[in-house]
């Protein structure tokens, strides 16, 4: 049976918008990302279980926003000047926008799901158990995945 996207949007749209707004700090980009999240949900609908999809939507939203940050960073028009301007106009640039950028730098080359897990753990402050619950993985699996980032983080910190 096809997903009732309208019903899902009514129930979870507000949460997805908040998540995207928090990570992207841009109302228009967040609106576009929210749309992408629900389209991605339809894309994955064959593999959805009957449980509450809030955690899945949250993960998709996180991943979608990280991809947007990555792709924007690669575009030539996204010069430092524009980034500085956007950071300056953000409500609290010292908090999550800068943190997201830093994280984005750290997560280059890591698996998407690892990047999402790392945001949940490092940016959102979830415990490993909570990340495992959200990502439907074992705690040891999460710990192992996050450990793969450590060398990369250390390398960046040494720069």
């Amino acid at each position: 049976m096809p997903l009732d996207v309208d019903a899902l949007y009514r129930r979870y749209g507000s949460m997805v918008q908040r998540r995207c707004r928090h990570l992207l700090r841009d109302e228009q980009a967040a609106a576009e990302a929210t749309q992408d999240v629900f389209v991605e949900l339809v894309r994955r609908s064959d593999r959805l279980d009957a449980g509450a999809p809030s955690a899945l939507l949250y993960r998709i939203a996180t991943n979608t926003c990280l991809n947007r940050l990555r792709s924007k960073r690669r575009r030539p028009e996204d010069a430092d000047g524009e980034l500085v301007e956007r950071i300056a106009s953000a409500p609290d640039p010292s908090e999550s926008w800068l943190a997201a950028l830093t994280l984005e730098r750290i997560f280059q080359g890591q698996q998407t799901s690892t990047r999402t897990m790392a945001v949940l753990h490092l940016l959102d402050g979830m415990t490993l158990e909570e990340v495992a619950d959200t990502c439907e993985m074992s705690v040891s699996g999460v710990r192992k995945r996050l450990r793969t980032l450590k060398a990369h983080v250390a390398e960046l910190e040494g720069l």
Partner: peptide, 26 residues
């Protein structure tokens, strides 16, 4: 604040652009 925002959002139908994108994906 989250509860209030969810309630306010509950009456908002999915934007047409989203409905359309979903139809295209299907």
């Amino acid at each position: 604040a989250v509860v209030d925002a969810n309630e306010a959002h509950h009456d908002a139908p999915a934007p047409l652009a989203l409905v359309l994108a979903v139809q295209q994906e299907r």
